[in-house]
């Protein structure tokens, strides 16, 4: 049995007056890939952004319920959001490298967190992160060129390298491949498969094929409710709910 990493209990979320999540209960297992699927506006991205409290930045957004990371409530008043985010990293839909050099993109956060000094320690840390994001070979000769000059797929892997350089436990991915072409997508998927040895990965995806290919578990959301959650194989072959069946077979929406 897998150990539980993130445990969500009866999570409700409002944007101003409208309720976007109606009481979600779900457990994400450690060192596995969980895919969140569902039609647009079903609340899957919203849920993901709750996990490292990126929703705090949206005015009028409030939540009820609990999100436990390793048993601790991340919405407890004494929790420091900044520290939380070093434990729960995030990769965004559109690659967003900083307008700095490739090296600086990766070194930025470790330097702020004091994870390495500036000399060879940092070089090593940067190299490791880039290697683990399997982009080292492509960029090792141009570490000091702008990160924004890379191709889309490379940029996204650079963003992943940037995230793992902070050594989080959980990585959230918000449709990481939706802005990429099929070849770049394949590379990222390969990378995710590698990364799940060390990290708990929770990803939102629009593509059911992608969920079926790389996730261990899949959660199907609809209209702010969690409809079904289980092993990916089960969800895609014998879903329990009719709604899930309709969605994955394309008879829907």
């Amino acid at each position: 049995m897998n150990t539980s990493k993130v445990n969500i209990k009866d999570l409700k979320l409002w944007y101003g007056e409208s309720e976007a999540l109606h009481g979600i209960d779900i457990e994400f297992s450690e060192k596995r890939v969980t895919a969140l699927i569902g039609p647009s506006g079903c609340g899957k991205s919203t849920l993901l952004r709750c996990l490292n409290r990126m929703n705090d930045r949206i005015p009028g957004c409030r939540i009820e319920g609990q999100i436990l990371l390793d048993g601790d409530d991340i919405y407890a008043p004494e929790v420091d959001v900044v520290q939380l985010r070093t434990h729960v990293g995030m990769v965004f839909q559109k690659p967003n490298p900083f307008p700095k050099s490739i090296y600086e993109n990766v070194a930025y956060a470790p330097r702020i967190h004091g994870l390495a000094g500036s000399g060879s320690d940092m070089d090593e840390l940067v190299e490791t992160a880039l290697r683990r994001a399997s982009i080292w070979k492509e960029v090792k000769d141009k570490l000091h060129t702008p990160g924004t000059a890379l191709s889309g797929g490379q940029q996204q892997r650079l963003c992943i390298a940037r995230t793992i350089a902070v050594q989080p436990n959980v990585i959230l991915m918000d449709e990481p491949c939706s802005a990429l072409d099929p070849i770049a997508t394949a590379k990222i998927e390969e990378l995710i498969d590698e990364l799940k040895r060390e990290f708990t990965i929770i990803m939102v995806t629009h593509s059911m094929q992608q969920a079926a290919r790389i996730s261990d578990q899949t959660a199907f959301f609809y209209m702010g409710d969690l409809i079904e959650f289980g092993e990916t194989g089960t969800i895609f072959t014998q879903p329990e709910k009719q709604q899930t069946e309709d969605y994955i077979t394309g008879r829907f929406g």
Partner: peptide
């Protein structure tokens, strides 16, 4: 772009 701020904040800064 907002995405740059999000990217940085998500790194725990």
């Amino acid at each position: 772009p907002q995405s740059l701020r999000d990217g940085s904040l998500a790194l725990g800064t």
